[in-house]
Design a protein around this nucleic acid. Structure first.
Lengths: 271, 271
DNA sequence: GGAGACAACTGGTCAATACCAGTTGGCCGA
DNA sequence: TCGGCCAACTGGTATTGACCAGTTGTCTCC
């Protein structure tokens, strides 16, 4: 006999007595989800531990398996549990958050290390690694607008996948006008010490500003795979435009970060 | 007879021929979701329109209702459709994005209008309204740390719900040390022209810096209700610390924004 | 002793069915 | 004419039953 039997009877009695409150009958699958969530936050099911199997929960609560699965789906979409076929459902360990340093784009920070991602790694104390793919294409409407060039102009595109301690944490795609990158190391996979921004400056485009546009959304299925995201975890999106002396935009950088592992840190003047 | 019958037979034949590819059998509910999603992006089901009812889809695809619901749940969690009990499922219209201005915290912007939210409204051209609740409590660990005060010190807490054109778009909670707010309009609901920051400066705390920490997560059930969020839409979280001359933090502000309706805009110096 | 088969778990998918709960519009009676 | 009721839609919740598909430990056979 499950706990829900009495709970439901209570609800029914409340309805019968026609109390004026708006309290709705709580569906069984919600009750189960709430119960399990409570056990997790209370520590009864510690982080990383296996929670009872679906069939065990069927027994315990006295409800059918679809209803149990409905409850577990809720917790999964909230990012509370992690389900593995053939193994079971685990309490999701909360990963450490990498805080993107507020000064990550300052000239000094850029000179001190190999690039912004490697700089973040140095600040955060984790081991970075990057996979790069370079290709060329015609600028579409959006990129052309952000780079202030004509649509169709050839641009150099750098796709990168960044890892922290081997775990994929960030996807980035940069677009640079080809007239800046042509015959430079920017069209190679490794841009050398100081990163791409150092090379851009060496070619006479002194950077003055970075503009960042921050949003958030659920990951696409591609991102879900490449960032190894769990269900119910959104991504942070950052579009950065690097602006050189004279106001010319020289790079657009679209970043996708696991919201579970990243926070962005900004410092703004009050003036 | 549904479209899936032949699709599934194809899969089975492919398995029998033992082709070396890793193509898995695609579950029926996934196929239905993919099909419906394709119809939506193709424009066959325009934005805001009603898609066929669950029972109609059962007929069309020749599958059971639980399977249809499974497919619709997918689309719902992706934010593709919006389901209303008793009415049907609608193609989700993509709402307009409010871009939080890069200069929203500059002194000039603050002087020009009633506060940052009202300033954003002026920039974005929508009609703002705010509900405020003021209360007092003891600072917990986190707030005390951010405000550089002793835990347990009494603080003034301002809870706000901001609306754009009547639609709730932002939740904010501010903590201010009571020694700053005592006997001031900051403990009233309406802080007057220029907003809270203007009052803080009038009391002799000239603001020099704002620090912002940006993250993202799925909404809590409370936030889901008060921000009227659809399933599958994450929220942006911003923790802002206002720092006065001399380096003293004078306000901590936790903001929760619908990621669907907000983007944050930052401008960073390259120096 | 080691490799492989297999049993016994785990979750994943799907059907058929029943009834509850909002919404809507039309019909009927006052 | 107008108000209210009700039928016929819509999605929401839950059951029972079945079989598929990964994972893992054990047991047997070589």
């Amino acid at each position: 006999m499950g706990v829900l039997t009495s709970a439901r009877r209570d609800q029914r009695e409340r309805r019968v007595t026609a109390v004026a409150d708006n309290a709705r009958r709580v569906p069984a699958y919600r009750q189960v989800a709430d119960d399990l969530r409570a056990r997790i936050v209370s520590g009864e099911y510690p982080s990383g531990s296996l929670i009872p199997s679906e069939r065990e929960l069927v027994e315990e609560f006295g409800i059918s398996r679809p209803t149990v699965r409905n409850a577990l789906d809720l917790l999964r979409n909230e990012g509370v549990i992690l389900v593995e076929h053939g193994r079971g459902a685990f309490v999701r360990p909360t990963p450490t958050v990498h805080r993107l340093a507020r000064n990550r784009l300052s000239r000094k920070a850029r000179e001190d290390n190999q690039g912004t991602f490697l700089g973040d790694a140095a600040t955060g104390g984790w081991t970075p690694s990057v996979s790069v793919r370079v290709r060329f294409e015609s600028a579409d409407e959006r990129i052309a607008g952000l780079l202030a060039i004509a649509p169709g102009t050839e641009v150099c595109v750098r796709d990168r996948l960044m890892r922290a301690d081997g775990i994929p944490v960030q996807l980035a795609t940069s677009w640079l006008p080809r007239d800046i990158t042509r015959d430079s190391v920017l069209e190679q996979m490794d841009t050398g010490p100081g990163g791409a921004y150092a090379r851009i400056e060496e070619m006479g485009h002194r950077l003055t500003m970075f503009e960042e546009l921050v949003g958030s959304r659920m990951p696409t299925s591609d991102e879900l795979v490449s960032l190894q995201l769990a269900a119910g975890i959104p991504v942070l999106t950052v579009t950065r435009v690097a602006i050189a002396e004279g106001g010319r935009p020289v790079e657009v950088n679209d970043m996708v970060l696991s919201s579970e592992r990243y926070q962005l840190h900004y410092m703004l003047s009050a003036e």
